[in-house]
Computed example of a mutant assay.
Amino acid sequence: MDDLAGYLQARRALADPAASGIAVDSRRRVSGLRREEVAHLSGVSVDYYVRLEQGRATQPSEQVLDALARVLALDETEREHMGRLARQRRRRVNAPSGRPRPELLRVLDLVVDAPALLMDCRLNVLAGNRLARSLFGRPLPGLNTARHIFLEEAERGLYAEWESCTLDVVGHLRLAAGKHPEDARLAALIGELAMGSERFRRLWARADVRARTHGRKVYQHPLVGRLELHQENFALPDASGTEMLVLSAAPGSAAEDALRLLASLGADDTDDTDDADARPGVGSRAGE
């Protein structure tokens, strides 16, 4: 699904030669850096670097990885991702089960003034509170936000900053693929997105990775209008890859008023809808 060789090739093609002091003129026909340039700048032999890109050299040292990260201008998240890919043969991380503990479901219900949900590394929503269901306008088990953003054209309008959301999704899935290389369901999801979305294919080819733990999230809700919210991601301490996401509005903001209105509009939800979220196995794609 993802490996060191492919990652090096993708990042080399995106590297800026000028940033490494290499003069570029109209006769240069390659984008990014050449293999021999990366080898020279990182202090390894050309033969060794070629073998890395061909997948024939395994377990490069941390010093080599640090040098490659410097040459390819990788940030901390990208460097960690590259190191994880290099260690894949030695270390396997178990794929998440997709079954949230009942205690976590009770915690969700304690959050009443902000949408809150549980999401696994495949971007499946495992459960959510009442306000989260009102935000998405549907029962949450069975919702995969990657499919929602890339494949469900009718739902695209919910994401006021759709292009930014697509970058986040692809960057997250790249990280997940590095952490869970044996996860067949994650591989199937990535294949489905690649088959169904030309934008996903283009972004995936860049091999960008993103670890978004907090930031701005903007929705255009059909009932209450624009919602400018702040998202906080809380990773659970059980190494399952599951996160709790809470979307809050700034005090006194228009978004805070809109969330109150949304809560009042959803106050007549039936108990059957609540029960659906309490049972994470419900839904055609829950736990994928």
Rank of each mutant, 00 (worst) to 15 (best):
residue 158 L to D: 03
residue 59 Q to K: 09
residue 101 R to F: 12
residue 203 L to T: 04
residue 225 G to I: 09
residue 7 Y to A: 03
residue 244 M to T: 08
residue 172 H to E: 01
residue 135 L to Q: 08
residue 114 A to D: 08
residue 231 Q to H: 07
residue 109 D to M: 14
residue 129 N to F: 08
residue 42 S to Q: 00
residue 91 R to S: 11
residue 132 A to N: 05
residue 106 R to K: 14
residue 245 L to G: 11
residue 203 L to G: 02
residue 209 V to A: 15
residue 105 L to G: 11
residue 250 A to N: 02
residue 233 N to Y: 11
residue 121 C to E: 15
residue 143 L to E: 12
residue 250 A to S: 00
residue 77 T to G: 14
residue 259 L to Y: 09
residue 211 A to M: 09
residue 178 G to H: 13
residue 111 V to W: 02
residue 284 S to E: 11
residue 45 S to E: 05
residue 161 E to C: 07
residue 234 F to V: 11
residue 216 R to Q: 05
residue 86 A to Y: 06
residue 168 D to V: 03
residue 130 R to Y: 10
residue 54 Q to F: 01
residue 208 D to P: 01
residue 216 R to H: 08
residue 188 A to S: 06
residue 115 P to M: 10
residue 15 A to L: 06
residue 165 C to L: 12
residue 142 G to R: 13
residue 119 M to E: 00
residue 151 L to A: 14
residue 34 R to K: 15
residue 30 V to M: 13
residue 201 R to W: 07
residue 32 G to Q: 10
residue 103 E to G: 14
residue 63 Q to F: 00
residue 234 F to A: 14
residue 171 G to W: 07
residue 2 D to K: 06
residue 26 S to M: 00
residue 187 A to Y: 03
residue 72 L to D: 12
residue 191 G to S: 09
residue 25 D to G: 05
residue 203 L to D: 04
residue 228 E to L: 03
residue 273 T to W: 12
residue 29 R to D: 06
residue 255 A to V: 03
residue 249 A to T: 05
residue 67 A to K: 05
residue 242 T to M: 13
residue 162 W to V: 04
residue 149 I to R: 07
residue 112 V to S: 07
residue 172 H to D: 02
residue 87 R to H: 09
residue 160 A to C: 10
residue 89 R to Q: 03
residue 9 Q to W: 05
residue 278 A to L: 15
residue 287 G to N: 14
residue 66 D to L: 01
residue 180 H to Y: 06
residue 134 S to A: 02
residue 234 F to C: 12
residue 92 R to F: 06
residue 53 E to H: 02
residue 131 L to N: 03
residue 5 A to Q: 02
residue 227 L to P: 05
residue 286 A to R: 06
residue 122 R to Y: 09
residue 244 M to Q: 14
residue 221 H to T: 01
residue 280 P to G: 15
residue 225 G to N: 13
residue 254 A to P: 03
residue 122 R to L: 08
residue 82 M to S: 08
residue 108 L to A: 06
residue 56 R to F: 04
residue 9 Q to M: 04
residue 245 L to D: 13
residue 231 Q to R: 14
residue 176 A to I: 01
residue 129 N to H: 12
residue 263 A to Q: 15
residue 273 T to Q: 15
residue 35 R to G: 05
residue 64 V to S: 01
residue 24 V to G: 11
residue 64 V to A: 10
residue 277 D to T: 13
residue 182 E to I: 00
residue 242 T to V: 15
residue 209 V to S: 15
residue 148 H to Q: 04
residue 255 A to C: 02
residue 276 A to P: 04
residue 111 V to P: 03
residue 132 A to I: 05
residue 164 S to C: 08
residue 61 S to N: 14
residue 255 A to E: 01
residue 234 F to N: 14
residue 7 Y to T: 04
residue 49 Y to L: 00
residue 208 D to H: 01
residue 275 D to E: 00
residue 164 S to P: 02
residue 85 L to P: 05
residue 50 V to D: 09
residue 263 A to V: 11
residue 1 M to D: 03
residue 68 L to M: 03
residue 75 D to T: 10
residue 271 D to N: 11
residue 220 Q to D: 03
residue 144 N to Y: 08
residue 238 D to M: 06
residue 284 S to I: 03
residue 135 L to F: 08
residue 287 G to Y: 12
residue 154 A to N: 06
residue 168 D to Q: 07
residue 193 L to N: 02
residue 56 R to S: 02
residue 28 R to Q: 12
residue 162 W to T: 07
residue 131 L to G: 02
residue 121 C to L: 15
residue 246 V to S: 03
residue 223 L to H: 10
residue 232 E to T: 12
